[in-house]
């Protein structure tokens, strides 16, 4: 039975948290921090509930469709935000992170709710493929936010901007560390996601083979190649390990991610039919009722999943 929790619930909660973060630029009443945490927790609880409902309705959920995948990524990033709010309570991290959480939810709103994987796909590889790429995306986004904050903080320090209680950012040292670790994590996770996708296709043995010309595969390959090159550059060139250089590397990683996600949503690919069956987030559950697990050899739609 539906609980009545829908996308509006957690979108509104995160929106309130972002509004409260913005209020902090003008005034910092004592209750504000508590209200921010409460709004974020409310959003995460509502989103968890929503995803759990979808998971209970679908054997592949919560990563069965583009819609679910985006929401899962937003959910992961929201948890990262909550952890950072508690770890760096005075920093205005929400101003940078929450718009991305909301953007992912917005993307989910317009993303397809059709299953990305056919039922003939090996389930374990499908889950690994989706989870690794989702975690890799979170790592790239976190690195992007840390890089952006680094550049803002660095510019403020260069310009001798006074310390402001209303707009505080973490120290350059902390941001640089988060930035570098995000880049490493993103490279590994996207790599694992890519490899698990390839292995999933190879495990299929239906003769369809790897479709390297698929737009999503091309853009994901591009992003993975960039992350590997950036990490190699970072390891080989000491100056790229710190400061603005590593921030620029993660910003570029974000550009590749946007291209990949754009391709993921807009083009007709093996990862789903972009633009079709939009308007999710209401009562529809993103799973084709006919796409229940079937016995091997049973008649099934053509394979739709590659890395």
């Amino acid at each position: 039975m539906s609980s009545g929790v829908n996308m509006l619930c957690f979108t509104a909660s995160f929106g309130v948290a972002l509004a409260l973060e913005a209020v902090g630029l003008w005034a910092r009443p004592r209750w504000r921090r508590l209200a921010v945490v409460a709004a974020a927790v409310a959003g995460i609880v509502a989103q968890t509930w929503y995803l759990a409902e979808r998971a209970s309705a679908s054997p592949w959920a919560p990563l069965s469709s583009q819609h679910d995948w985006y929401l899962s990524a937003a959910w992961g990033l929201a948890i990262v935000y909550l952890a950072l709010v508690l770890y760096q309570p005075r920093a205005a991290i929400g101003l940078f992170l929450l718009p991305i959480v909301l953007a992912l939810i917005g993307a989910a709103r317009f993303a397809s709710t059709e299953p990305m994987a056919g039922t003939e796909m090996p389930r374990i590889w499908g889950i690994l493929h989706g989870v690794f790429l989702m975690l890799g995306t979170i790592a790239v986004l976190l690195g992007f936010v840390a890089g952006l904050m680094y550049l803002v903080q660095s510019a403020r320090l260069k310009n001798k901007a006074p310390l402001s209680e209303r707009f505080r950012l973490p120290s350059l040292e902390w941001l640089e560390r988060v930035n570098a670790r995000s880049l490493i994590a993103a490279t590994i996770l996207v790599g694992l996601g890519f490899v698990s996708g390839v292995l999933m296709r190879l495990a299929l043995r239906d003769g369809s083979g790897l479709q390297w010309t698929d737009p999503v595969v091309i853009s994901l390959s591009g992003m993975f190649s960039w992350l590997v090159a950036a990490e190699a550059f970072r390891l080989a060139y000491p100056a790229a390990r710190r400061g603005r250089k590593v921030a620029y590397l993660t910003l570029a990683g974000f550009v590749f991610l946007v291209i990949t996600l754009g391709t993921f949503m807009s083009s007709k690919s093996m990862h789903g039919r972009g633009g079709e069956n939009v308007g999710a987030g209401q009562k529809t559950v993103g799973i084709n009722p006919t796409a229940r697990p079937q016995r091997a050899g049973a008649s099934s739609p053509p394979a739709e999943v590659t890395p």
Binding site: Q153, P162, L163, E165, L169, P170, S171, L172, W174
Partner: peptide, 25 residues
């Protein structure tokens, strides 16, 4: 009050308001 939050000696401002924005520790 915020009386104690605003440092006023040159070294204290330098360390607490500026150096701490560069270094975590």
């Amino acid at each position: 009050t915020s009386l104690h939050k605003h440092r006023v000696s040159i070294p204290s401002v330098a360390i607490a308001d500026f150096a701490s924005r560069v270094f975590e520790r």
